[in-house]
Design a binder for these strands. Structure first.
Lengths: 216, 216
DNA sequence: CTCTAAAAGCAAATATTTTGCTTTAGTGGG
DNA sequence: CCCACTAAAGCAAAATATTTGCTTTTAGAG
């Protein structure tokens, strides 16, 4: 029983448990795919999304899910990041401002939609900071693309961090915290304001506090 | 049994079920307080926060909690908003930039702390948009105070919406999505950049995608 | 081909959530 | 002040979900 102690230690030192992608191509991957698909389908169907339900649909036993993901929340978080991955590059219109406006408008619309909100919530609800971070990385990459093209054309776009701060962050904040959409005008206004002054639309939600549960 | 139909209808038309504060001052309020206190205490103690556990500590039956709040998530959301209520006014230093920097630095630190993150997560995880909205309102009010004072002194601060977009949103986005803190320099940089150009610190988190669950 | 270890299946044990019914506590009318 | 009424709490049984110990399968290494 105590045969290969040192070798074990070496192995453990090297291994870095990559959460949910152990032996790529094998059974693990198949099951992961089945589970993700099951979640997608149940979401589509408007079903209730319970672990037993997902397991049944995936043809898998619940304990498999519990052991791999821990909680429903974490599973949904993983599913959401996957769905948030951008499917293509931002359109190239020959001008970075236009590119950015176009991209942002679509991005804002997606994120403000009910499924978009749900995905963000799922990502943020789990205790997996990597997932939230991945979302930001995806966004940053899209912006980088717009930016690289601009630089190649000799334009001088602000750096990605600035765009995140000035344009992405306000849109997301608005969606998450004010329950307002972030419509085209608002988005365009943010882009206009990117360099120098800019104060577009007024807010709305913060007129009245819900008395709700604030009593004490 | 069908005696007072019309009167019933009138009553129902007037009532607007205010989620969790029904007959103020009575039993309902006492129980709400007991439950909130129980949650606080268990959080303090680092306990696990289950509905049965909270119910036990509050001296209440679990079904009471389930019927009033629906889910643990919603209860925690309510608790979190209460804790996020600001305890005082921002300091008055005689200059709005300084006020804002001071306030923001403290705000960012609070929100970036583990309890702060947990509270934001709790608020955003529930399907109670009012709660998230309330957070934004609280923040807006603090900013309004700084701003009103500035106006009274004859200064010309940007409007609250702009401050939210340019200063609050980036800080929160950073905390939620990049798992970085938002330190004093970063915050100060945002305030400096409020009018005109400004591009402080570099990011960090978005160097590498976690391979985790992005396989397919 | 065999051996090993990680991961899946299975089923029993726990824990949680939901639900129907009963009891209690505020509220308004007499 | 007492009574009737209603909303909410308590209780306990039923339904669900989660955890856990053990067995079986499977992919990969020798």
């Amino acid at each position: 029983m105590a045969v290969a102690g040192q070798e074990m230690d070496q192995k453990q030192a090297v291994m870095e448990k990559p959460q949910a992608a152990p032996r790529p191509g094998g059974r693990a991957a198949r099951i992961q795919a089945a589970v993700f698909k099951a979640v997608d389908e149940l979401k589509q169907a408007g079903e209730e999304l319970t672990v037993p339900g997902i397991a049944a649909r995936a043809g898998v036993t619940p304990s498999t899910i519990y052991r791999r993901w821990g909680t429903l929340t974490d599973l949904l978080s993983d599913v959401a990041v996957r769905q948030l991955r951008p499917d293509g590059e931002p359109r190239d219109s020959g001008d970075w401002r236009a590119d950015l406006k176009g991209w942002l408008e679509q991005y804002a619309e997606e994120m403000a939609s009910d499924p978009g909100r749900a995905m963000m919530r799922d990502v943020l609800s789990s205790d997996r900071p990597e997932n939230a971070c991945t979302c930001a990385v995806y966004t940053g990459r899209q912006l980088d693309i717009i930016r690289e093209r601009a630089l190649a054309r000799g334009e001088t776009p602000p750096d990605t961090r600035t765009i995140m701060d000035r344009v992405v962050a306000p849109v997301i904040y608005r969606i998450l915290f004010t329950h307002e959409g972030a419509d085209g005008d608002y988005a365009a206004g943010l882009v206009e304001g990117l360099l120098g002054e800019g104060a577009p639309q007024p807010p709305a939600c913060w007129q009245e506090l819900s008395p709700h549960s604030l009593g004490g």
